[in-house]
Amino acid sequence: MEVTGILTAIIIGLIIGALGRLVVPGKQNIPIWLTLVIGVVAAIIGTFLAAALGVDDTRGVDWIELALQVGLAAVGVALVAGTRGRR
């Protein structure tokens, strides 16, 4: 993977994290940096999952891959917000 690919993955991951946080209802008591880290991880896992399902390379926008990434980010944000809220 090239440096530009890594930087692109990080930028896309930051956007995915923000979208994942918007999908989760209610207030999440987690810092924004943690949301962004969750987004980067969700973007990477979502890309690998889309590749495993064979939907990673389609014509135009990869909507299924994007939905997987946002869904994973939403689950990650909900899990982390739930565990941090119990402290």
Results as ranks from 00 to 15, higher is better:
residue 47 T to A: 09
residue 1 M to E: 00
residue 70 V to G: 02
residue 40 V to K: 04
residue 32 I to E: 11
residue 73 A to C: 04
residue 80 V to S: 01
residue 47 T to V: 10
residue 20 G to A: 01
residue 4 T to A: 14
residue 58 T to Y: 14
residue 23 V to K: 05
residue 16 I to H: 00
residue 38 I to W: 02
residue 53 L to N: 10
residue 44 I to L: 08
residue 54 G to L: 13
residue 30 I to V: 08
residue 70 V to Q: 05
residue 24 V to N: 00
residue 42 A to Y: 03
residue 11 I to Q: 05
residue 82 G to T: 08
residue 60 G to P: 01
residue 58 T to Q: 14
residue 18 A to Q: 12
residue 85 G to M: 08
residue 85 G to W: 08
residue 77 V to L: 03
residue 40 V to S: 07
residue 70 V to N: 01
residue 23 V to C: 05
residue 30 I to M: 10
residue 30 I to A: 06
residue 21 R to K: 12
residue 59 R to Y: 14
residue 49 L to W: 09
residue 33 W to G: 05
residue 73 A to D: 00
residue 54 G to W: 15
residue 22 L to C: 07
residue 60 G to L: 02
residue 76 G to D: 06
residue 66 L to T: 14
residue 79 L to A: 12
residue 25 P to M: 07
residue 29 N to L: 12
residue 21 R to T: 07
residue 37 V to N: 05
residue 24 V to R: 01
residue 39 G to M: 01
residue 64 I to M: 13
residue 72 L to S: 02
residue 37 V to F: 07
residue 38 I to D: 03
residue 68 L to Y: 09
residue 20 G to D: 00
residue 33 W to N: 07
residue 45 I to L: 11
residue 35 T to R: 02
residue 43 A to S: 10
residue 76 G to N: 06
residue 76 G to K: 05
residue 43 A to K: 01
residue 52 A to T: 12
residue 27 K to M: 12
residue 16 I to R: 03
residue 12 I to R: 10
residue 54 G to K: 13
residue 10 I to V: 13
residue 53 L to C: 13
residue 50 A to R: 11
residue 44 I to Y: 09
residue 28 Q to S: 09
residue 24 V to E: 04
residue 31 P to G: 12
residue 50 A to T: 13
residue 82 G to F: 05
residue 66 L to H: 12
residue 31 P to D: 15
residue 30 I to W: 10
residue 74 A to W: 01
residue 7 L to D: 07
residue 64 I to V: 15
residue 84 R to T: 09
residue 35 T to M: 04
residue 22 L to S: 09
residue 44 I to R: 06
residue 44 I to G: 04
residue 43 A to T: 06
residue 36 L to Y: 09
residue 74 A to F: 03
residue 86 R to H: 11
residue 65 E to T: 15
residue 80 V to P: 00
residue 84 R to C: 07
residue 33 W to H: 07
residue 32 I to H: 10
residue 35 T to K: 00
residue 23 V to H: 03
residue 65 E to V: 10
residue 38 I to F: 01
residue 48 F to G: 09
residue 12 I to Q: 09
residue 15 I to Q: 03
residue 3 V to I: 11
residue 17 G to Q: 01
residue 56 D to V: 12
residue 46 G to D: 07
residue 60 G to F: 03
residue 77 V to D: 01
residue 59 R to N: 13
residue 31 P to Q: 13
residue 7 L to Q: 06
residue 28 Q to D: 10
residue 36 L to Q: 08
residue 86 R to E: 11
residue 39 G to L: 04
residue 65 E to D: 14
residue 82 G to S: 05
residue 77 V to G: 04
residue 52 A to M: 13
residue 27 K to S: 15
residue 3 V to R: 05
residue 69 Q to L: 09
residue 53 L to M: 15
